[in-house]
């Protein structure tokens, strides 16, 4: 029942000796404060326990269902149009793909999305061109693609001219200069899903 860092943990496991920075500890998915015992955490998901210095804990799991979390960036397709005011005209139509940030996510309410940052600037958010193509990958794959050290997208960028939007919800929007490339890149991502990070790195090193 020890459940050390880098080991497999199960729901119900209790983590003691939490490392904190000035009595603040940051917890990611798969962990909850244990109300029965002070200064301990309780695991809520099966997975590998991870720790990032100085005070961040989370559980890496292969979960399939997306649970929205505040601040995450997602790709989605507009289903309903509402809330356009005269002051802020919204140029979004039903059926458009958008890249948006989750503004607030409460258990009792529908999550809210925004396409501007706190300075009302769009930045990388907003409507995605209708020329693009939307497909799904597993949540785990989306997380792996978003890791800064993952070389796959960069390596593909050497060969193909494309733009991409990867949502934390496992939806991916892809737009290429050539239509054929869309299929090629999609296939590359699908193949990479079943490969380890090390073998992806090896394959990418061969591409020059």
């Amino acid at each position: 029942m020890s459940g050390g860092i880098g080991e497999l943990v199960y729901p119900g496991n209790i983590l003691k000796n939490i490392r904190s920075n000035k009595f603040v500890c940051i917890i990611g998915p798969g962990l909850k404060r244990n109300d029965n015992l002070p200064n301990t955490l309780i695991v809520t998901r099966v997975g590998t326990l991870r720790f990032e210095s100085p005070n961040t804990y989370w559980v890496d799991s292969l979960q399939k269902r997306y649970i929205p979390k505040r601040g995450e960036l997602v790709v989605g397709i507009v289903a309903k149009k509402a809330g356009a005011t005269k002051k802020q005209k919204v140029n979004i139509n039903v059926g458009d793909a958008v890249y948006a940030k989750l503004l607030n996510t409460y258990k009792e309410m529908e999550p809210e999305l925004v396409c501007v940052d706190s300075y009302f600037k769009a930045g990388s958010l907003g409507v995605l061109s209708s020329e693009g193509f939307v497909f799904s990958v597993s949540l785990n794959m989306a997380h792996r693609l978003l890791s800064i050290e993952n070389p796959l997208l960069r390596t593909l960028g050497k060969k193909y001219k494309y733009e991409i939007a990867i949502g934390m919800n496992g939806k991916v929007w892809l737009n290429c200069a050539k239509t054929v490339d869309v299929l090629k890149i999609k296939e590359a991502i699908e193949i990479a899903e079943k490969k380890s990070d090390a073998s992806i790195l090896n394959t990418c090193k061969k591409v020059r």
Partner: peptide, 13 residues
């Protein structure tokens, strides 16, 4: 206890 736990997204982790 005296430790404050702050929940965050995996994005930040």
């Amino acid at each position: 206890g005296n430790i404050v736990f702050i929940e965050t997204s995996i994005f930040n982790c």
